[in-house]
Protein backbone atom coordinates (compact mmCIF):
# COMPACT_ATOMS: atom_id res chain seq x y z
CA UNK A 1 0.00 0.00 0.00
CA UNK A 2 1.12 3.54 -0.73
CA UNK A 3 2.34 5.97 1.92
CA UNK A 4 0.79 9.44 2.08
CA UNK A 5 3.97 10.90 0.60
CA UNK A 6 3.44 8.82 -2.54
CA UNK A 7 -0.09 10.00 -3.32
CA UNK A 8 -1.24 12.38 -6.05
CA UNK A 9 -2.76 15.53 -4.48
CA UNK A 10 -6.51 15.79 -5.00
CA UNK A 11 -6.78 11.99 -5.31
CA UNK A 12 -6.55 12.28 -9.11
CA UNK A 13 -6.23 8.93 -10.82
CA UNK A 14 -3.69 9.48 -13.57
CA UNK A 15 -4.09 6.08 -15.16
CA UNK A 16 -6.87 5.39 -17.65
CA UNK A 17 -9.02 2.27 -17.34
CA UNK A 18 -8.01 1.60 -13.76
CA UNK A 19 -11.53 0.54 -12.77
CA UNK A 20 -10.71 -2.84 -14.34
CA UNK A 21 -8.55 -3.42 -11.25
CA UNK A 22 -11.49 -2.86 -8.93
CA UNK A 23 -13.66 -5.94 -8.83
CA UNK A 24 -17.14 -5.20 -7.58
CA UNK A 25 -18.88 -8.53 -8.13
CA UNK A 26 -19.04 -9.29 -4.40
CA UNK A 27 -21.59 -6.47 -3.92
CA UNK A 28 -24.23 -8.54 -5.77
CA UNK A 29 -27.32 -9.96 -4.09
CA UNK A 30 -29.12 -10.82 -7.35
CA UNK A 31 -27.37 -12.52 -10.25
CA UNK A 32 -28.35 -12.04 -13.92
CA UNK A 33 -28.72 -15.25 -15.85
CA UNK A 34 -28.60 -15.38 -19.62
CA UNK A 35 -31.14 -17.60 -21.37
CA UNK A 36 -29.50 -17.91 -24.75
CA UNK A 37 -32.58 -19.40 -26.42
CA UNK A 38 -34.50 -16.14 -25.83
CA UNK A 39 -31.66 -13.80 -26.88
CA UNK A 40 -32.10 -11.84 -30.13
CA UNK A 41 -28.57 -10.29 -29.87
CA UNK A 42 -29.90 -6.74 -29.72
CA UNK A 43 -27.08 -5.84 -27.25
CA UNK A 44 -29.37 -3.62 -25.20
CA UNK A 45 -27.92 -5.31 -22.07
CA UNK A 46 -24.39 -4.32 -23.15
CA UNK A 47 -25.55 -0.78 -23.89
CA UNK A 48 -27.32 -0.30 -20.58
CA UNK A 49 -24.87 -2.09 -18.26
CA UNK A 50 -23.43 0.70 -16.05
CA UNK A 51 -20.25 -1.35 -15.56
CA UNK A 52 -18.55 -3.69 -18.02
CA UNK A 53 -20.23 -6.89 -16.99
CA UNK A 54 -21.77 -7.93 -20.31
CA UNK A 55 -19.27 -9.90 -22.32
CA UNK A 56 -19.38 -9.40 -26.07
CA UNK A 57 -17.28 -11.17 -28.70
CA UNK A 58 -17.52 -10.63 -32.45
CA UNK A 59 -20.51 -8.34 -31.95
CA UNK A 60 -22.46 -10.94 -29.97
CA UNK A 61 -23.47 -11.23 -26.34
CA UNK A 62 -21.65 -14.23 -24.84
CA UNK A 63 -22.56 -14.02 -21.15
CA UNK A 64 -21.75 -12.05 -17.99
CA UNK A 65 -18.49 -11.15 -16.31
CA UNK A 66 -19.45 -11.72 -12.70
CA UNK A 67 -16.27 -10.05 -11.41
CA UNK A 68 -17.85 -6.69 -12.26
CA UNK A 69 -21.61 -7.32 -12.15
CA UNK A 70 -23.12 -5.62 -9.08
CA UNK A 71 -26.51 -7.18 -9.76
CA UNK A 72 -28.35 -3.93 -10.45
CA UNK A 73 -30.76 -5.66 -12.81
CA UNK A 74 -30.81 -2.95 -15.48
CA UNK A 75 -29.94 -5.50 -18.17
CA UNK A 76 -32.87 -7.74 -17.20
CA UNK A 77 -35.20 -4.76 -17.08
CA UNK A 78 -34.18 -3.56 -20.56
CA UNK A 79 -33.98 -6.97 -22.21
CA UNK A 80 -36.78 -7.15 -24.84
CA UNK A 81 -36.40 -10.94 -25.10
CA UNK A 82 -38.04 -13.00 -27.80
CA UNK A 83 -41.82 -13.16 -28.15
CA UNK A 84 -42.34 -11.90 -24.63
CA UNK A 85 -39.81 -14.25 -23.03
CA UNK A 86 -36.86 -12.51 -21.32
CA UNK A 87 -33.32 -13.58 -22.22
CA UNK A 88 -32.02 -12.20 -18.89
CA UNK A 89 -33.58 -13.01 -15.54
CA UNK A 90 -32.40 -12.07 -12.05
CA UNK A 91 -31.92 -14.83 -9.49
CA UNK A 92 -31.08 -14.42 -5.82
CA UNK A 93 -27.45 -15.19 -5.04
CA UNK A 94 -26.91 -18.29 -2.99
CA UNK A 95 -29.78 -20.20 -4.54
Amino acid sequence: MKKWTELVPGAVVLEAGSSAKFKTGSWRTFRPEWLQENCIQCLMCWLYCPDMAVKVADGKMTGFDYDYCKGCGVCAKECPGKQGKKAIIMKPEGK
Binding site: K3, W4, L7, P9, A11, V13, G17
Partner: peptide
Protein backbone atom coordinates in the same frame (compact mmCIF):
# COMPACT_ATOMS: atom_id res chain seq x y z
CA UNK B 1 -3.71 17.26 -14.42
CA UNK B 2 -6.53 18.85 -16.44
CA UNK B 3 -9.44 16.55 -17.21
CA UNK B 4 -9.68 17.95 -20.76
CA UNK B 5 -6.19 16.75 -21.65
CA UNK B 6 -7.48 14.04 -23.98
CA UNK B 7 -4.01 12.59 -24.50
CA UNK B 8 -3.81 11.67 -20.83
CA UNK B 9 -7.18 10.41 -19.62
CA UNK B 10 -7.63 10.51 -15.84
CA UNK B 11 -10.30 10.34 -13.18
CA UNK B 12 -11.27 12.85 -10.49
CA UNK B 13 -13.28 11.96 -7.39
CA UNK B 14 -12.53 8.25 -6.91
CA UNK B 15 -13.89 6.15 -4.07
CA UNK B 16 -11.16 5.87 -1.42
CA UNK B 17 -12.03 3.72 1.57
CA UNK B 18 -10.25 2.56 4.71
CA UNK B 19 -7.13 1.59 2.81
CA UNK B 20 -6.08 5.11 1.71
CA UNK B 21 -8.50 7.84 2.89
CA UNK B 22 -6.47 8.48 6.04
CA UNK B 23 -3.32 8.93 3.92
CA UNK B 24 -5.07 11.38 1.56
CA UNK B 25 -6.17 13.50 4.57
CA UNK B 26 -2.60 13.42 5.90
CA UNK B 27 -1.47 14.75 2.52
CA UNK B 28 -4.14 17.49 2.69
CA UNK B 29 -2.87 18.47 6.14
CA UNK B 30 0.66 18.64 4.75
Amino acid sequence: NPLLDMEHPKSFGPLILTDLYHEYKRLQHE
